[in-house]
Design a protein around this nucleic acid. Sequence first.
DNA 1: GCAAAAGTGTTCTTCGTACACCCATGC
DNA 2: GCATGGGTGTACGAAGAACACTTTTGC
Lengths: 229, 229
Amino acid sequence: MQYNPEDILPTISTDCVIFGLDQGKLKVLLTRRAIAPKKGGWALLGGFVLKHEDLETSARRTLKEISGMSNVYMEQVHSFGQVGRFPSRRVITVAYYALINYTLENLKPGPDSSDVQWFAINEVPELVFDHRYILDTTLAFLRSRVRTEPIGFELLPAKFTLTQLQGLYEAVLGTSFDTRNFRKKLLKMNLLIPLDESQTGVAHRAARLYSFNKDIYQKLKAKGFSFEL
Amino acid sequence: MQYNPEDILPTISTDCVIFGLDQGKLKVLLTRRAIAPKKGGWALLGGFVLKHEDLETSARRTLKEISGMSNVYMEQVHSFGQVGRFPSRRVITVAYYALINYTLENLKPGPDSSDVQWFAINEVPELVFDHRYILDTTLAFLRSRVRTEPIGFELLPAKFTLTQLQGLYEAVLGTSFDTRNFRKKLLKMNLLIPLDESQTGVAHRAARLYSFNKDIYQKLKAKGFSFEL
DNA sequence: GCAAAAGTGTTCTTCGTACACCCATGC
DNA sequence: GCATGGGTGTACGAAGAACACTTTTGC
């Protein structure tokens, strides 16, 4: 979809760092630019803000155009406005990050891009403009956030095993945890709902599935509970 | 100082929440608007970004015009871009906060304001636009920040007593601490340098003065230390 | 029966918390 | 000498960290 130049704020864009988890690896979604400047370069998903839309709405629109997804966990990180960060004219960008349940389906390049692709966090190619800096800042933000808010679940399917959960934290934080202590700690929080279901199709003992309920967290939080990993 | 309309980005402003500590109370600096829209209303210190300046530079310029201060601790908080937050046209604002050593000297209204004044955090008058929301968001940000980074010192003079320090945390966080535990915890961090000086001019036992050194913190941080109150 | 991951308890150390009295100084 | 805030130590309980073996399942 193309937008009328009159409907666009030419000095303000949003960029969104989209994180997904694929086989225990943290990945980011990037697009290849199909227009100047920096045609052909890899970039974060982003675009100019429309005159009649809020900042987060703009970031969500971009994400939806490319992944088809809505109702995604998204949060503002920081605004980047260095003089000269964008060639030829002044553009300030507001960075968001999104956590999505990894998929290869329904990905299609946006209006001004020729390709979309997932990259493991340590195999990211060269990026256009200041996008590398934005990515690094956002990743640092996510790492601090994931330890103090129960947002990691957004990267997992609705039903998950404790091993998957541990793997997620290890992938995001780049550390490893002791299995017994990790389970003890998470289960003691009473945020996880044990289901009467198990994994299927695995060549070993099937693990129990759990789910996470945001409402329970909100209620506990209101009572003074604070998530901390 | 007035700026040429051609040098200004009319869609982007910065607003700065300036915090100071006066006699154990947390205060914010506000200005009274001397121009439309909302002439006469109380507002955060802010202004439009110039074409040739970075975002933080813009916030620092505004602060300097009003307080005469530079080299102040400042950090970006969040950007606010709701459609309709500013009357008559679309303006996105990037909010910063600053921590300064409280003073009444050298305060003078900026180019478009008629008054500058400190307000205790719980006696803030009605504010223009979405400034109340920005203030609340920023205060919440500060409260979380002050517990995880040693930034509180920025609100105190270079030499301070442990009682002043405790009072600062109590004022910012709205809680109270046990004196013995508070001292034990802070001194154990090895961030405070005990000076061979004491308070003067007090009608009771004079307290020892301490100073805080950022370099020491940076070195400890690099070794894995993390400040936590 | 074997490979592969699931699941589970105890000990020790560290850290947070609760709590009350004497000290130094100015007036 | 008295009022005012400065300064200090100990005991208890909670939480984090280290650590190894048995269980279940599919093949």
